[in-house]
Design a protein around this nucleic acid. Structure first.
Lengths: 207, 207
DNA sequence: GTCTATAACCTGATAGAC
DNA sequence: GTCTATCAGGTTATAGAC
């Protein structure tokens, strides 16, 4: 995403790319229209020509980010012919890939949801996030009813998975400076951590 | 803390109280000196008289917040005559209490560490956070060597505990709107969630 | 479509009167 | 100590030329 740098498209696409990069790194409040314009190599007013306000531009960026993640995860988790451990591992890999390319994405999402939840929520609903979540819930519930998965509260499952998945990125500075030993990279830590996530979910669903 | 509203002290204390409330809610960048002054009922320049810069004022607020949490947790977790489950439950209660009084505190800490890690880290070091962490590590390691606790990587323990502990507050909006059922309060959800945290830590350390 | 110029406002910080 | 007045610089947004 942020590091593809495919500045071949029109100016509008180049603006969105630059805006995403800066919004992700510095957040909404920390990014000025001047910053974005300077990053693209144009002048401020041109930004307002394409996206009347700063808020609208943020909406375009945020929608693009989430919309590129959501469908992939749904496809992986609903492959109910594969064992749970394999599916969870693939989902973790998918998230790890996006989070490693954009390390501040988890904090970005959480931060912007706190800033303007209603606006963000509307963007998510427009992307069909609700149906995405319901699909996953239904798929897992059917596997539980069929006896192939242990019955466990859906929110216990979701909360544990997403808290373990995102914490290394949300508190990356803390991890690197307090928890990661000398001579070990953050990637090494992530790989080890992935095992703990898969174990935790397997223990919940398989016993 | 933020809701004690003991505006009986001097003006300096009242300023710190108002600043804490606003910083917690809107973050550093989202809070202006004008906001704080207006909240206290004084004029901007008076703020600069007490805390020369905005950064220094943030340092005072942040140090106060963390300094009030750190010692209590250390005292609880080092009571090695009590069973692990009881100790973890008490630590969760302590954090829950502070987080419930200041719901945006976890997000605040994570956000400000991302903004200026070195500055924040220096504040934490001045508060003796390193010796606090080392005390806990040493205490647990001794219990492991004595065979009363299962040997488990310290960071696995810390990461799992803090990710599960903070996630409901970091992503509170998401929890309330997606995971909490109708007619159930956030407090109900927290109480249920506490059980899962204690279980997870007990399973790691006791088996 | 993209630019220059500018409006209208808010920011952190300081100087100096009382 | 707390105030008024002010500074220099930044912000979003718009108007109008090309």
């Amino acid at each position: 995403m942020a590091n593809e740098k495919k500045h071949v498209g029109g100016l509008e696409a180049r603006i969105v790319d630059a805006a995403r990069e800066l919004f992700l790194e510095r957040g909404f409040a920390g990014t000025s229209m001047s910053d974005i314009a300077q990053h693209v190599g144009i002048n401020r007013p041109t930004l307002h020509y394409y996206f009347r306000t700063k808020e609208r531009m943020f909406g375009a960026v945020f929608g693009g980010i989430v919309g590129s993640l959501v469908p992939r995860v749904k496809d992986i988790i609903l492959q109910d012919d594969k064992p749970v451990g394999e599916r969870v591992g693939k989902v973790v890999d998918a998230y790890y890939g996006v989070f490693t390319a954009n390390p501040s994405l988890p904090l970005f999402i959480v931060r912007e949801m706190d800033r303007d939840f209603d606006g963000v929520a509307n963007t998510l609903i427009e992307l069909g996030l609700k149906s995405y979540i319901n699909s996953i819930k239904q798929g897992l519930l059917e596997e539980m009813k069929a006896g192939r998965l242990k019955r466990v509260p859906m929110r216990y499952l979701f909360m544990t998975f997403y808290s373990m998945l995102t914490m290394p990125f949300v508190a990356r500075n803390l991890c690197c400076n307090v928890l990661v030993s000398d001579g070990e990279s953050f990637a090494d830590f992530l790989a080890e951590w992935k095992g703990y996530i898969v174990d935790a979910v397997e223990r919940m669903l398989c016993e």
